[in-house]
Design a protein around this nucleic acid. Structure first.
Length: 491
RNA sequence: GGCGCGUUCGUCUAGAGGCCCAGGACGCCGCCCUUUCAAGGCGGAGAUCGGGGGUUCGAAUCCCCCACGCGCUACCA
C-alpha cells in the first residue's frame, strides 16, 4: 500500500486543521497497514504559488510527528515530488489523450467563457463548457495551436453513469450527462489538479488516497480519466468536512487557521493528534484518549464516519491540559523554561533563572491548559518592585472595603515580618498566614485574595505560600508595603 | 437552479433488528477536597435517535417519501 498526502502551497496559507487532519488519516492508514506514506507538493497554480508555505507543510507535519517515507528530502523511486518538476509527464499524457480522441485543444477565450457562464446563468441552465472546440479538425487544431494560446480539455463521456466506490461512503453514482469537458492542461502548460492527480497517483503507484469531501463531486472526472488512459484508479476515501461553530465548512475565519498557530499558542502535538484523530473517526465506544502510536496501530478507514464534524476548541483545550499533566518531569521543566524565555517581558533577563523555573514548574502543571498561559502566571517572580495593581483590585473580594484590605495587609506584615530569612520557606510562611485569621477575624479563604493581588498582581494564580517562598522575604514584604501605601492613599 | 453528501445528548461520537425507555468523552450543574485558581473524586441534568409512512412479533438500526443542512458547480486546489 502506498498512500499520499498532497499540499498546494498558496496564499490561502499554511496547512490548516482540515489539511492536517487529512494528512493524519492518510499517515495512520499507511502505518496501520504497513504501507508507505508519501508527500507530494502540488505547485501547479503558478499565480498563487507561495514558496514559504512549502516550508510550513514540512514544519506542520514534523511538529506532529507525521514523518513521510517518501517525498521532499526523502527521495525514493517515485521522485520528484514537486509537480512543477513533473511537467513532461502531464504533457505526454495530454498528447496521448488528444491522439486517442479523448481530449482536444480549446481556444476559447476567458471572455467567451465568462459570457457563456453568464448566459447559462440567465437561462437558469447549469454552467459548463458548451463544447465549441470539441469537434475541431485535428489539422486545424494543430495549426491554430502554433499561433494562439490554448488549453486542453478532456472529452467527458456523456452517456451512462460513473460510479465511485468510496472507501467511506460506498458506491456513489454520478450522471455522466451532467458532466462537462474540464480543462486538464492550462494555457501556461501546467496541469490542473484533475490531470495531475491522476497522472501522479498512477506514476507514484498510489493505491489509496484520502481527501476532503469537497472533492467528491470531481471524482467522476478522475475516474473517467483513469478509464480513458486504461489505468487502474486509486481507491478514494472522502473524509467528511470539518465544520465551524456556524456549521459551515471550517473557514480560516472560524478556526481553520494554520496548524502552526496552534503550536505557537501552546498546544501540544499529542493533544492536536488526539483531537484530530477523533474528528470523524473512533476506535470504539469508550476510548477518547489516544496516542499517535496507538493510532498508527489501530486506525481503520472503515471506522471513519461519513458525516461532518463541528470543530470544538474546548475539547482541544481539555486534551491539551491532559497531556500537559501527563508530561514527564524533565520535559515539563524544559517546556516551562522555553515558554518563559519566549513570552516573559523583554525586561526580564534571558535565559530566565532556571532555579526559579524548577521551583514554579510543579505549581503550574494543573493550572495551565495552553503553554502561553505560563508566562502571565509567573511574571510576578521576575523583578523586585510590586506588580501593577490598584487599591480597587486589592479590595475587590472584600466588597471594596479599603479599610478591611488595609487591615489584612497590616496583619500580613505583622505575621510575616518575624519569619527570619533562613526560615523563609513554605511551612513557616503558611503557619504565619494562617495565624492571621484571628487578627483579622476572617477565614483564610476570604482574605487571601488581598495577598494574591499584593504579591502577584492578580486575584488568583499559583499557590500563595509557595509563591512567597520563591519570591523571597525581602521582595514579599516590600510588595506588602507597597500595597499598604496604595490602600492608605485610596482610603 | 442542478448534482452529490449528510441528519443519534449543546459538541465529538458508540450503535450494523431484540444486549438501547440509547453507552462514552468534552462542556454544563451540584457536592467533596482546598490558601486563590485549577486539578482530582463523586453525583446529576442532557438525545421521544430530523419528520412521516412502511417491513417485522420487535427498528436508532432495513425500505420509501418529505424536510432541513452542507459541499461542488474556475485555465484554484
Amino acid at each position: 500500500m502506498i498512500v499520499r498526502t498532497r499540499y498546494a502551497p498558496s496564499p490561502t496559507g499554511d496547512p490548516t486543521i482540515g489539511n492536517i487532519r487529512t494528512a493524519l488519516f492518510t499517515w495512520a492508514l499507511a502505518r496501520a497497514n504497513g504501507g508507505t506514506f508519501l508527500l507530494r507538493i502540488e505547485d501547479t497554480d503558478r499565480k498563487r504559488l507561495v514558496e514559504t508555505s512549502v516550508q510550513a507543510i514540512y514544519d506542520s507535519l514534523r511538529w506532529l510527528g507525521l514523518e513521510w517515507d517518501e517525498g521532499p528530502g526523502v527521495d525514493g523511486i517515485h521522485a520528484p515530488y514537486f509537480q512543477s518538476q513533473r511537467l513532461p509527464l502531464y504533457e505526454k499524457t495530454a498528447e496521448t489523450l488528444i491522439a486517442k480522441g479523448r481530449a482536444y485543444r480549446c481556444f476559447c477565450t476567458a471572455e467567451r467563457l465568462d459570457r457563456l457562464r453568464a448566459e447559462q446563468a440567465a437561462r437558469k441552465q447549469p454552467p459548463g463548457y458548451d463544447g465549441l472546440c470539441r469537434e475541431l479538425e485535428p489539422e486545424a487544431s494543430l495549426r491554430r495551436a502554433r499561433a494562439a494560446p490554448f488549453v486542453v480539455r478532456f472529452k467527458m463521456n456523456r452517456d451512462g453513469v460513473t460510479v465511485l466506490d468510496d472507501l467511506i461512503r460506498g458506491p456513489v453514482t454520478f450522471e455522466n450527462a451532467l458532466q462537462d469537458d474540464f480543462v486538464m492542461l492550462k494555457s501556461d502548460g501546467y496541469p490542473t489538479y484533475h490531470l495531475a492527480v491522476v497522472v501522479d497517483d498512477t506514476e507514484m503507484e498510489i493505491t489509496h488516497a484520502v481527501r476532503g469531501d469537497e472533492w467528491i463531486s470531481s471524482a467522476p472526472k478522475h475516474l473517467q480519466l483513469y478509464e480513458a488512459l486504461g489505468w487502474t484508479p486509486t481507491r478514494f476515501a472522502h473524509l467528511p468536512l470539518i465544520l465551524g461553530p456556524d456549521k459551515k465548512k471550517l473557514s480560516k475565519r472560524m478556526g481553520d487557521t494554520a496548524i502552526l498557530d496552534y503550536r505557537d499558542k501552546g498546544y501540544l502535538p499529542e493533544a492536536m493528534i488526539n483531537f484530530l484523530a477523533f474528528l470523524g473517526w473512533s476506535l470504539d465506544d469508550k476510548t477518547s484518549l489516544i496516542t499517535i502510536e496507538e493510532l498508527a496501530e489501530r486506525f481503520s478507514v472503515e471506522r471513519v464516519v461519513p458525516n461532518p464534524a463541528v470543530f470544538d476548541i474546548e475539547r482541544l483545550d481539555f486534551l491539551n491540559g491532559h497531556y500537559i499533566r501527563e508530561m514527564d518531569e524533565t520535559r515539563w521543566l524544559t517546556t516551562v523554561a522555553d515558554w518563559c524565555d519566549r513570552r516573559l517581558p523583554r525586561s526580564v533577563r534571558r535565559p530566565v533563572d532556571r532555579g526559579v523555573i524548577s521551583a514554579v514548574a510543579p505549581l503550574l502543571r494543573e493550572r495551565v491548559k495552553r503553554l502561553d498561559q505560563i508566562a502571565p502566571l509567573v511574571e510576578f517572580l521576575f523583578g523586585f518592585e510590586a506588580p501593577e495593581h490598584t487599591a480597587v483590585e486589592l479590595a475587590d473580594r472584600l466588597a471594596g472595603d479599603y479599610a478591611l484590605a488595609l487591615a489584612v495587609v497590616d496583619a500580613a506584615l505583622l505575621a510575616l515580618d518575624p519569619v527570619p530569612e533562613e526560615r523563609w520557606e513554605r511551612e513557616p510562611i503558611e503557619a504565619a498566614v494562617r495565624g492571621m485569621e484571628a487578627a483579622v477575624s476572617m477565614k483564610l479563604g476570604k482574605f487571601v485574595s488581598v495577598l494574591y493581588v499584593a504579591e502577584m498582581g492578580r486575584g488568583q494564580g499559583i499557590p500563595l505560600f509557595d509563591s512567597l517562598a520563591i519570591l523571597g522575604r525581602e521582595r514579599s514584604l516590600h510588595r506588602l508595603r507597597t500595597a499598604r501605601a496604595r490602600l492608605e492613599h485610596a482610603g
